[in-house]
Design a protein around this nucleic acid. Structure first.
Length: 683
DNA sequence: TTTAGGG
DNA sequence: CCCTAAA
């Protein structure tokens, strides 16, 4: 019996504009211990950093445009203007830029109360301290408070305040500054990214002036990437002039949306649900921004040291940042818990690879030598821009305009809210991006699988083919293991299946729905299977305290699944132990709650280890501390009014049992205490 | 390591 | 969920 008519949305790729952000290394001092809100944010950060670096490197000497600040002072002044969100700044800016912003192209996300903030990087100028990168999606209509909060992020530029949330342009791409990074006097061309990884180690800074092509890119950027339901493949932005005549794979700024329902199991069969998809698409920037915002928020103190060189009076933000710094500092003792982290972090124990390290810095042949550097130094997906090879220098200059993200399938009940849909899409994308990323290269629509081939052999080095070179982000183990998309393995004791059934019947977007995503033939990604075989990717050591799949590209609706997927998207580079990651939030399902209640009823409170062993022995992601915490919240939940409860509703019956068990065991505890006291008194 | 409790 | 004192 079909409880829900489900809609399957296949997102045949997202455009992930490459937006640079600051490199950790350039930031100078890194906090001894820094906890990130979650791994996904870290993944985004990494991605953004990498991508942005690539772009920067490729664009070569991209620096701040002199028109926006011929010297530092002017630039800072401009920064101040940005900070005050003076839209009039645009009047002084490149007309194209203004136009671009007015038309809300994807590269010009509304930020900070709707004002686009951008500047242009040009050769010869410098990157301010808080020049940063982040990722934004191709939605020009991101709204709301998420953006505004960027205003809160501030940083110092060479001792002067500057808004940490600016948008700049690099070769047509927007750069949303998030935080402090390099020294002001550090030209872009000098900036390397050794800190994050050695990705660009071999990159030769492409000294390709992009001015000449800037407008071309702008033309491209001008068109909002409306979600167009078409049969075309995903398209990353490309130069119009370079659009290959070939099959739909290079249509402009379109994102294929494949919509399915239960009657259409055929992968290739697509229908269109434009309105729905547009809605579904929109939340992405919000999410991303939230991630970035949180990220920057979590780090706002990191830039503080620079601020101490500033003049308080002249820089109100100084206080804000300093306050933030002080507060965080007071809250956290920056003790470094690397060991703890390593012990707990699955991936850190395993591959320990940086997200893209395997791509750019792996020992294999896929990226070594100048070819790698060249390709990366300018890696260009779509908006490739190639300088004529100089004699004796056959480097390929590329510029990654955007990454293609693997196709994504979502199944969601028709009864789900739009908000659920948004969240689902977001989480799916997040999960993908949060995974251990692998960069796929496709040339003229075909994936280049042979990593050992040289660019020359592959044809990438040929000018006339450059336009069809693309980069795609794909989960590292996408081809290796079939990801699970079901809820956490039914690790609960007997009776779980019924609970799951109960859960499935819930109209709420429920994890237990056992959604099975469909295989994406395009991406060659495995489908989710309703098994708990625990297939282990060869590259990942699961001896750590988890048995969860680590790589999923296709994601089904369950939020928990999404969380689970993202959970292991931890890209930890050995030695970068400051990246202490917070575990992903994984709300307890009703069945888990039931199992917990049952165990506590039997064992009592205060025996969390036993509870764990009894009811969650195989749920490696649930520690006894987690169970204890959950019980605590359950008790609290049971005591508050149903209106005040949030999250997935717990059946009242369970909550009653919680209260009963809690009071009972509390009594028992009291009795024991009294007993002990009495004994002591007697003695 | 586990418990307990604050954040 | 995190952190940590205390057992």
């Amino acid at each position: 019996m079909v409880l829900h008519r489900r809609l399957d949305y296949g997102f045949n790729g997202y455009q992930v504009p490459v937006v640079p952000r600051a490199s950790r290394s350039a930031r100078g001092r890194v906090p001894i211990k820094k906890k990130f809100d979650d791994q996904r944010k870290r993944a985004f950060e990494i991605l953004a950093t990498v991508a942005g670096k690539l772009l920067l490197e490729s664009e070569g000497s991209g620096c701040f445009d002199s028109s926006h600040g011929k010297d530092q002072d002017n630039r800072v002044k401009n920064n101040n203007k940005w900070e005050t969100e003076d839209p009039g700044r645009l009047s002084n800016a490149d007309p194209c830029e203004k136009e671009r912003c007015d038309e809300k192209p994807f590269t010009c996300l509304p930020r900070m109360k709707g004002h686009h903030q951008s500047c242009t990087l040009n050769e010869g100028s410098h990157v301010p301290d808080n020049f940063g990168f982040d990722i934004s999606f191709n939605s020009g209509n991101a709204q709301g408070s998420e953006k505004a909060s960027f205003v809160e992020k501030s940083a110092a530029v060479n001792g002067r305040r500057a808004c940490g949330s600016r948008s700049c342009k690099v070769g047509g791409d927007s750069i949303h500054g998030v935080e402090c990074a390099t020294s002001l006097s550090t030209p872009v061309t000098k900036r390397k990214i050794e800190a994050e990884s050695s990705i660009i180690r071999n990159v030769k800074t492409g000294n390709v002036p992009f001015r000449g092509t800037l407008n071309d890119k702008m033309v491209l950027a001008r068109e909002p990437p409306a979600l167009v339901c078409s049969q075309s493949n995903v398209i990353t932005p490309s130069f119009r002039g370079f659009i290959p005549p070939g099959p739909a794979s290079w249509q402009d700024d379109t994102v294929k949306v494949v919509c399915r329902d239960d009657d259409e199991n055929s992968i290739g069969c697509t229908s269109t649900h434009p309105s729905t998809m547009l809605k579904a698409y929109r939340p992405l920037p919000d999410i991303i921004d939230r991630r970035i915002r949180n990220l920057s928020a979590s780090r706002c103190w990191r830039v503080a040291p620079n601020l101490f060189r500033t003049d308080k009076k002249a820089n109100p933000i100084y206080h804000k940042v300093k306050t933030c710094y002080a507060r965080q500092r007071s809250q956290r003792i920056f003790s470094f818990k690397r060991k703890k982290f390593l012990d707990r972090s699955p991936l850190s124990k395993s591959s320990g690879r940086f997200c893209c390290e395997g791509i750019f810095n792996s020992p294999d042949k896929r990226s070594n030598g100048d070819n790698c550097g060249a390709a990366l130094g300018g890696s260009s997906s779509v908006a490739s821009q190639q300088a004529p090879p100089r004699s004796g220098d056959c480097n390929v200059k590329l510029s990654i305009k955007a990454f293609k993200v693997p196709e994504l399938f979502i199944e969601i009940p028709v009864t789900a809210t739009v908000g659920s849909l948004k969240r689902t899409v977001m989480e799916a994308v997040t999960a993908i991006l949060g995974d251990e990323l692998h960069v796929g290269v496709f040339l003229q629509g075909k994936m280049v699988r042979d990593d050992s081939k040289t660019l020359l052999q592959t044809g990438i080095s040929q000018d006339n083919k450059h336009h069809s070179l693309g980069f795609m982000l794909e989960p590292r183990h996408a081809q290796i293991m079939p990801p699970e998309c079901t809820e956490d393995p039914p690790l609960l004791p007997g009776g779980t299946s019924q609970q799951h059934t109960k859960q499935t019947a819930s109209p709420v977007l429920q994890p237990g729905s056992s959604n099975v995503s469909q295989v994406s033939p395009v991406m060659n990604l495995s489908s989710c299977v309703e098994t708990n075989l625990g297939v282990v990717p060869p590259l990942v050591d699961t001896s750590a305290d988890n048995a969860m799949p680590k790589s999923q590209a296709l994601v089904s609706v369950p939020a928990i699944s999404m969380e689970a997927l993202a959970m292991f998207a931890l890209h930890q580079k050995p030695g970068h132990s400051e990246f202490v990651q917070r575990r992903i939030r994984r709300p307890f399902s009703v069945s888990e709650v039931e199992a917990l209640v049952q165990a506590v009823e039997e064992l009592g409170t205060g025996r969390w280890r036993d509870v764990k062993l009894r009811a969650f022995e195989n749920a490696n992601h649930r520690t006894y501390v987690d169970l204890k915490d959950k019980w605590k919240t359950l008790v609290h939940t049971a005591r508050i009014s149903p209106q005040q409860r949030r999250g997935e509703p717990v059946p009242q019956e369970l909550l009653d049992r919680v209260l009963a068990a809690h009071s009972y065991w509390s009594q028992q505890q009291d009795k024991h205490q009294l007993k002990g006291t009495g004994l002591q008194l007697c003695l």
